[in-house]
Design a protein around this nucleic acid. Structure first.
Length: 121
DNA sequence: TTTCTTACA
DNA sequence: TGTAAGTA
């Protein structure tokens, strides 16, 4: 499929699909006219990349674990280099921090909602 | 019409 | 990331 279709199916703008390619996250084939040609499997891969990016994982690290990504939300390391282990541990810590931050804001919003409901009702 | 590259905000 | 220009 061409970039436009992949963009629609993944909800990722074409601008970003080209950017991910530039970062080494994607490597589509080229048609005779120069258009990028993506295989079906890339739909899931792009979804996976989006998930990691939205979790705060930088493209440079995604690039490292990309070959370890299979089914949705699955990461299995086969070539665990010390550097990769270190960066993954750092990423995990950053994720934990974000999760705690989100949890606090969620709780704060819930508390606010509770008082609003009490006043309104 | 869609995609491509390059470049700027 | 979004958008613009000029093509193929």
């Amino acid at each position: 499929m061409r970039i436009g279709e992949l963009a629609e199916r993944t909800n990722v703008p074409t601008r970003l699909l080209r950017y991910y390619e530039e970062q080494g996250l994607l490597s589509p084939n080229r048609a005779a006219n120069g258009y990028r040609d993506y295989p079906e499997e890339l739909v899931d891969r792009v979804t996976q990349i989006r998930g990691l990016l939205d979790s705060g994982v930088p493209t440079r690290i995604i690039k490292q674990i990309l070959p370890c990504l299979d089914d949705p939300c699955t990461i299995h390391v086969t070539d665990a280099t010390p550097e990769l282990i270190a960066s993954l541990e750092q990423q995990r810590d950053q994720m934990d921090a974000r999760i705690r931050c989100l949890a606090r804001n969620r709780d704060a919003i819930n508390a606010y909602l509770d008082v609003v409901r009490r006043d309104t009702h």
